[in-house]
């Protein structure tokens, strides 16, 4: 474990806590894409299939459980919580994410560490995570004004993978024969997809104005 990876995991955890806070405090999920939350639930379930078979550390197992449980809890809230579900932007959150799931799985069948069920699903989860934010970014563009907690959620969600890239560089430089081509390539694509969001987030922070993404 190095400081970049720890910062990445803590940033990722923070983003999830911010989203839970937003939904709990405002009893609303306006501005949040349920499709992105469902994609993230799929990402965590298929990435952590080894949750019960491979024990790496208490930290690793604990975080995996937190990620799976929180993503499922958020999807449950947005679908079934009597108050929260009413504020879901159903008519704006229309990204047809079936193609993202299909393309990620197709790519995983071609490019994986090993051709086994667990490894193909692991690669699938890596590719899917790279594009999982797209429905959320589209929703932000369509919904105009973005509330602070939702903006912070997306910001830290994008930042965590940037820390992971620093972690991969650090490990590549310090550990012999360390390579993470699948996660690394996908992580760069994932972080790049946030580029314009980061730009408008920085502008809103500098001008102390409301975050606004151009339609």
């Amino acid at each position: 474990m190095n400081v970049f990876r720890l910062a990445g995991d803590m940033t990722h955890l923070l983003s999830i806590l911010l989203l839970l806070l937003k939904i709990y405090a405002t009893k609303s999920c306006s501005g949040v894409s349920r499709k992105t939350q469902e994609l993230y639930a799929i990402v965590f379930i298929f990435r952590y299939l080894d949750l019960f078979t491979d024990f790496i550390s208490v930290y690793n197992t604990f975080m995996k459980v937190v990620f799976i449980a929180s993503s499922l809890a958020i999807v449950w809230c947005m679908r079934f919580h009597p108050v929260v579900r009413r504020s879901y932007d159903r008519e704006l959150d229309t990204f047809r994410y079936f193609f993202l799931v299909g393309a990620s799985f197709a790519l995983a069948l071609i490019w994986h560490e090993k051709f086994s069920v667990q490894e193909v699903f692991w690669a699938f989860s890596i590719y899917l995570e790279a594009v999982a934010i797209l429905p959320q970014l589209v929703l932000l563009q369509r919904s105009g004004n973005v509330d602070n907690l939702t903006g912070q959620y997306v910001f830290f969600l994008g930042a965590y993978r940037a820390f992971y890239i620093l972690n991969w560089i650090y490990r590549y430089l310090t550990e012999p024969r360390f390579t993470r081509w699948i996660a690394g390539t996908s992580g760069v694509v994932q972080t790049a997809l946030y580029a314009d969001f980061f730009y408008y987030y920085f502008i809103s922070w500098k001008n102390n104005s409301k975050l606004k993404l151009p339609a």
Binding site: D9, D50, D54, I56, M63, K64
Partner: peptide
Amino acid sequence: LNKILYHDEL
């Protein structure tokens, strides 16, 4: 063991 080596990250 090598599987644990390259899936040690979240």
